[in-house]
Structures are given as C-alpha cells and as structure tokens.
Design a protein around this nucleic acid. Structure first.
Lengths: 160, 160
DNA sequence: TGGACTATCATGGGATTTCATGGGCCGTCA
DNA sequence: TGACGGCCCATGAAATCCCATGATAGTCCA
C-alpha cells in the first residue's frame, strides 16, 4: 500500500542534506521522477512534500474544479509557483533550499510526517508542539475513529 | 468475518520484539500486507492496532465523511502521522518503537486486547487497572448483556 | 481413559543486510 | 581559482532474517 505513514526524524548534515526515510522512498519507487516535490505549507510553519505524480494529479484536479478565479490564482501562485523539485542523490537524500529551512525553522534535524498521499517536513520541536495541540483537540472533541468508519460504511451502504 | 478477540500477554525481548498472538495473526492472514498498523490511543495510555486494510478503510471513510477541514487535519496528523506499519518477522513478531513503548509504559510484557476490528496493546498492569475501572463503571450503570441482546431481538421481531 | 506423539507457538540468539550519516573527490560555472 | 553542487565510497548502528529451543496444547491410538 503506497501511502506515506508514520513520522521519521533525520539529521541535516552540514551540506544541508537530509535522508528521505527509506519507507517514503519505497512509496516513490517505480515513479519516473526519482525525487520529491516540496512547497511551503499554507497553514503551518512546515513544508509539504509529495511525489511529482501527485502534483500532476493536483494540477488536473484544479482544472476540473469549480474554484473561483481568485482561489485558482492563489493556488497557482503559492503552490505551483512556490514548489521545487528535489532529486534524490545516490543515497536517497535531498537538499532543502535555505529559505525553505528558514521558513520551517529547520536547522539540525527534520521530521518527516506521513499524511497518506503527501507528507510534511517539520522542525522536530515545532512538530511536537503542534502534535500535542492536535491530540488535545481530538480528545476534547471526543473523536472516535471507529464511529467515523461505521458512519462512512453506513453511508456507503445506503448509497449502494 | 474473523475478529480480534480475547487478551494475550506476551514478552518483549531485549530487542524490543513481541510476538503477535497467533490468533490475531490468523485474522490478518491472507491480507496483502503481512503486519499491523499501530498508533497511540487518543484516550488511553495504550496503543491501538489494526490491519493495513482497516487503515485504508479509515482513509476512505475520511474522504467521504463530512468532517470539517480542521477535524480532517487533526486526524491526518495524529493518526496517520502517528501511525507506523510494523511488518511481521518470520516468527510473527513485531518491533514496537521505543517511543510507543514509553507512551504505553510497556517494558517487559505487552498485553494484546482484541476489540473486534482493532486491538489494543497495553502494559499489563495498566490494563488491569483500566479493566477494573471499566468493570466498576459497567456495574454502576447496570449494564446487562443479556438485556441488550433481548432488546435487540425484540426490535428485530417488531420490524419484520 | 490415559499416555505418547506431534504440531503449533512463544522466545532467544547469532548472522546478515539495510540504512542513515559523514567525508572526500571531481567536475562546472562564475 | 575558488565555491558549489553532484557523485561515489566508508562506516557504525539499527533493523531484518534465519535457525534453535522449550513449552504447551492438541491429537491419535491403544
């Protein structure tokens, strides 16, 4: 199953190189472009990454969507304009451009967070803060996964 | 359909390996991914486990559900970012990452608790405490399985 | 019914491979 | 010529695989 899962923390060496987790590279294996596409997150002090293929899908989706012209412009500029293709070196590492690192506050270590079709790259401390906040929120709202599944299954059942 | 049932306590060896109970492995048998997906429980000091397939269901459910963007984000970060795929070794064992063990307080032994479609992994002592608490609660609320079954049967009878 | 034989399973240890990480070399382009 | 990026190699640690062992439960036969 080819989705990005789990969180890995890797070191940034003095050349600015970071190993992309092997598990993530396996997800990307077999694709034409051996590397990742990265852009700044719209919501967080973090970077968003995905496969080049996923980026193309997103592009196609945009064209068929009913976004307003303004939103369309916005996404084109911020996401596509701000994206960069980062090829793997022989060992599966990428080099994050400096202004990306600064944006996310990444210096010594980078945390790769799987989010199914995409992943994020965080400064580990910032991620920890973000995560604990998220957990608290989830707890306080009493989110139950099994209920979500049950509900969705019921909807699928009703639809079919 | 096979479901996770009953509780098994297995040892964690010095490499951090634990045998997944054979009965649980039988439930997973025949699936494409030979292993389990584990994440931290939102509510307890325990780990939640399920099949990769179940995780995909959850993933699909998320997309078709009417969650707010925020809730969606929340789940992606806490569950998918916090999940890990643990493949079985040749003997049906998995290796729990240290981070997860600490979260659940697991050191020497791990208790696998079947919960139908999913299961939990507890430190045995914590589980005992948790269970007795639950038992008291159930007693105080006068929950009776036979009544629940009888009631459901009556409803089915009335409907048909 | 009881006892022996067998299959399954949890557990342990050693060997091997993978992976992250670091450093060095050699081009290219300014 | 000097800085930088790209490429290759070295290394230690960690994960993975493979085989051995003991215990338990289950089965079969007398």
């Amino acid at each position: 199953m080819a989705v990005f899962l789990s969180t890995y923390v890797n070191k940034v060496d003095r050349k600015g190189r970071v190993s992309v987790p092997a598990e993530f590279r396996k997800v990307l294996a077999g694709q034409s472009y051996q590397g990742v596409v990265v852009h700044k997150s719209l919501h967080y002090s973090a970077l968003e990454g995905c496969s080049a293929e996923h980026m193309e899908q997103l592009s196609d989706s945009l064209e068929t969507s009913d976004l307003s012209n303004e939103d369309y412009e916005l996404i084109e500029t911020t996401i596509f304009g701000g994206s960069i293709q980062l090829p793997f070196d022989g060992e599966g590492r990428i080099v994050l451009p400096q202004h990306f690192c600064e944006f996310a506050g990444i210096t010594e270590e980078a945390a790769f967070v799987g989010r199914r079709k995409t992943f994020q790259i965080w400064e580990p401390g910032a991620l920890a803060a973000h995560e604990s906040g998220m957990r608290d929120k989830a707890r306080s709202r009493d989110i139950s996964l099994s209920k979500i599944i049950a509900k969705a299954s019921a909807m699928r059942g009703a639809a079919s």
